[in-house]
Design a binder for these strands. Structure first.
Length: 760
DNA sequence: GCAAGGTC
């Protein structure tokens, strides 16, 4: 048996090894059987287990949060709720196989998924099974066959490194989140916030945002003065700035201004022209793609990643989570390019590529050995029904154009520096002109803004072929009339606010989070009311600001990204077998325990600083209408984590007021489930156990939406159906009605309420 | 109620 990390990889592995037979082990999980080799390839869904607090520590008040660090039994591994069918498959095939091959992704998390999450289930049913590892650099058939013929001993140290990461994140996160939340409980209650989370990555990121916010809030603008000249050139105006700009000495600047303000002519002293080639871009890894999409389409990182995933699942682009920007030598670019030949918009560009035989892409530098760079797999017109929404079209367009640009010619720009003399004062004007658009023709969004070409200066530089000249210097070449001399007072500006695009870059630079988690880390800070987005800019809210302000005197070593990079170094030493996992977990725990105790010591100071929140009742900043002093509870719904967009609604109207559809409310741990009417607050309760889903069909008795309830019992799941309205009626009247299976006249067929067939 | 990391 081969254990794989995901469905797509399982299928690719199986198909590379021989003809495949698909075995459905549950509604959604398939196992791929390669009959010729008698191999079962079993997919997983990433991690199938996670660390949680053991039952004794489940309640926040039950035990001292400090024990989460000191008591090794405080956290335990639990199977995820979707893991049932995967575990069943591991057990079923574990029993009948003699060799178990770990074929998860070739990285630390992949090893931990295969060996820590999945393998124990196999070993439990078959303790003597042999274990090997399939080390895959990509999912091409060649690589898979090669790796299969060269199985390696399992890389345990890699798996332990990942496991240590998970343990430390859980211990640090759970203990600190509880300790800080419980400390702030009275204050948080008053400002309507449930808890304040602390984590290795999110807290470092919040600290960096706090530092920037601090700079911006405390920024004092300093004045400076600038001199510039508007010069007339035919019907255009070109602007030249004083060579000594900017002036901090107002008197000096003013005296120059007075000297030249009535000048009529600007003498061209010299023209320097140089040209520069701009290389085609390098292939797209996840990080680059997220930065590109958020920047060009001005959407959030979360939406960008979601759209990439959707395009991938619809087989429109390749796997979107990769650290590589190098294609393997055997990557079949030709067949992709050929698909684009007939494209209405990109077709001509691609034809030219074939004509010029430019069919090899520019390569990047990093081959992380995971997946190929992000690549369009098919050629789609914007009208294609395969797109589910407008955003998918736009993202596909960006990725396709970018990919095609890898085969493009370099672009070329010319940079012209013109030095003027205005009454002996030197002024300079810089012009940047695109002289050869090269790959920008297919990917114009990669281009910076250029000036319109000015052939005037080409004539001035006496007819030399400027394209081939790197630098030409001419003196006293003529004059331009001065339209106006400008003398302006300006002020220094604070550093800019982060947006999703620059924040992703920051996280990459500071090595915070991974390609897959960065967008969700940003989202967590928003959900916690630590930060908010306004006009795509990130603002730190009062809660986040004060928290960092108060914590920085106690926890600086933890807030600094150096903490997480040190942890990562330690994890590396496990991977490289220089240190034992136990040793590293102990060291980091000890280090954090000292900080934890320091927090306890400083609690009174911390609390008094955070009390400001309570006094002003203000967790936000910059939204004037929300700053209400001396009111204890004010937090409007808007500043709370807004999950409203995730709500599902019934199509039927509220049976009471008949004005609104009803909102399906499910809280995070699925303990509360009900329909509620936003208008009249009417409730329809739902069964306590199981996950409800609104079906597209309506109850033929009352007209309300039929709901499917999925129940999971141990490793199995089953569905049943009910009508919430009839069911609530049944509860009230104790008639036990509303279950579709017990309905006299109707039944559910293919998810639809239909009349029962009558049998004569 | 909590983290960060995978993934449908």
């Amino acid at each position: 048996m081969i254990i794989s990390e995901k469905m797509k990889a399982a299928q690719a592995i199986a198909e590379a090894l021989g003809p495949v037979q698909i075995i459905s082990v549950s509604k959604f999980v398939k196992v791929f059987y390669v009959k010729s080799k008698d191999i079962y390839v079993i997919p997983l869904r990433g991690h199938i287990q996670q660390y949680k607090n053991s039952p004794a520590y489940k309640k926040w008040n039950a035990r001292d949060p400090r024990e989460i660090i000191t008591n090794p039994d405080a956290i335990r591994r639990f199977s995820n709720d979707f893991a049932g069918p995967y575990i069943s498959a591991l057990e079923k095939y574990g029993k009948i196989c003699s060799l178990c091959i770990i074929g998860t992704d070739a990285d630390v998390e992949g090893c931990s998924i295969g060996m820590i999450d999945a393998l124990p289930f196999v070993k439990q049913v078959n303790p003597s099974i042999r274990i090997k590892q399939l080390w895959l650099n990509d999912l091409s058939q060649n690589s898979i066959v090669k790796a299969y013929n060269n199985l390696i001993p399992p890389k345990w140290s890699w798996a332990y490194s990942g496991d240590a990461r998970a343990i430390l994140d859980a211990i640090i996160g759970f203990s600190a989140t509880r300790e800080v939340s419980l400390t702030l409980k009275p204050i948080l209650k008053k400002i309507g916030v449930g808890f304040t989370s602390i984590g290795r990555v999110q807290t470092s990121l919040l600290y960096l945002l706090y530092l920037r916010e601090h700079l911006i809030r405390n920024f004092v603008s300093k004045p400076f003065w600038s001199l510039s000249a508007d010069l007339a050139l035919k019907d255009r105006t070109i602007v030249a700035t004083h060579l000594k700009n900017n002036f901090t000495d107002k008197i000096l600047a003013e005296s120059i201004y007075n000297k030249i303000k009535n000048a009529k002519d600007a003498y061209v002293v010299s023209i320097k022209k140089s040209s520069k080639k701009i290389l085609t871009p390098t292939p797209l890894n996840t990080s680059k793609t997220l930065v590109l999409i958020t920047k060009i389409l001005k959407i959030t990182a979360k939406d960008a990643l979601k759209t990439l995933e959707d395009l991938y699942l619809n087989k429109i682009i390749s796997y979107p989570r990769t650290d590589s920007d190098v294609y393997s030598k055997t990557y079949d670019h030709l067949s992709i390019l050929q698909k684009f030949l007939i494209h209405n918009t990109y077709g001509n560009y691609v034809k030219t590529r074939f004509r010029l035989k430019k069919v090899n892409p520019r390569q990047g530098k990093v081959d992380a050995g995971d997946h190929s760079p992000i690549t369009p797999l098919i050629s789609l017109e914007p009208t294609s029904p395969k797109f589910e929404n407008d955003l998918q079209k736009k993202v596909y367009d960006l990725i396709s154009r970018y990919y095609l640009a890898l085969f493009g010619d370099p672009a070329e720009e010319s940079d012209t520096k013109i030095l003027f003399s205005i009454k002996e004062e030197e002024f300079i004007s810089r012009l940047s002109v695109l002289t050869d658009q090269g790959f920008y023709s297919i990917a114009p969004f990669l281009s910076k803004k250029y000036d319109a070409p000015l052939d005037f200066f080409d004539q001035l530089s006496s007819g030399k072929d400027s394209n081939k000249t790197d630098s030409t210097t001419k003196t006293h070449l003529g004059t331009l009339p001065v339209k106006k001399i400008n003398f302006r007072e300006k002020g220094t500006q604070p550093p800019p606010r982060y947006n999703d695009s620059s924040l992703l870059k920051l996280m990459e630079r500071k090595n915070l989070g991974t390609k897959s988690t960065r967008p969700s880390i940003i989202q967590i800070l928003i959900d916690r009311s630590y930060i908010e987005r306004k006009n795509r800019m990130i603002f730190v809210m009062e809660l986040g600001f004060l928290l960092m302000d108060a914590l920085k005197v106690i926890w600086l070593p933890f807030l600094d990204p150096k903490f997480t990079s040190n942890v990562e170094m330690q994890l590396e030493s496990i991977r490289k077998e220089k240190k034992q996992m136990k040793e590293v977990v102990k060291d980091v725990k000890d280090e954090f325990l000292i900080l934890f105790d320091k927090f306890r010591q400083e609690k009174p100071n911390f609390l008094s600083k955070m009390n400001v929140l309570e006094q002003t009742g203000n967790i936000t900043r910059g939204r004037d209408n929300l700053i209400i002093s001396n009111k204890k509870v004010f937090v409007p719904n808007k500043t709370r984590p807004d999950s409203s967009k995730n709500y599902k609604y019934s199509t039927a109207l509220c049976p009471n007021c008949k004005k609104n559809p009803m909102k399906l409310v499910i809280n995070r741990d699925y303990t509360k489930k009900f329909f509620v009417c936003d208008n009249c607050n009417t409730f329809l309760s739902l069964p306590k156990k199981g996950t409800p889903k609104i079906l597209k069909s309506k109850c033929l008795i009352c007209g309300f939406d039929v709901v499917k309830i999925t129940r999971k019992v141990r490793n199995n799941s089953y569905d049943y159906y009910l009508c919430p309205k009839c069911w609530n009626q049944g509860l009230k009247e104790k008639t036990n009605e509303g279950f579709c299976s017990k309905c006299k006249d109707f039944t559910i067929e293919n998810g639809k309420c239909v009349k029962k067939k009558e049998y004569p």
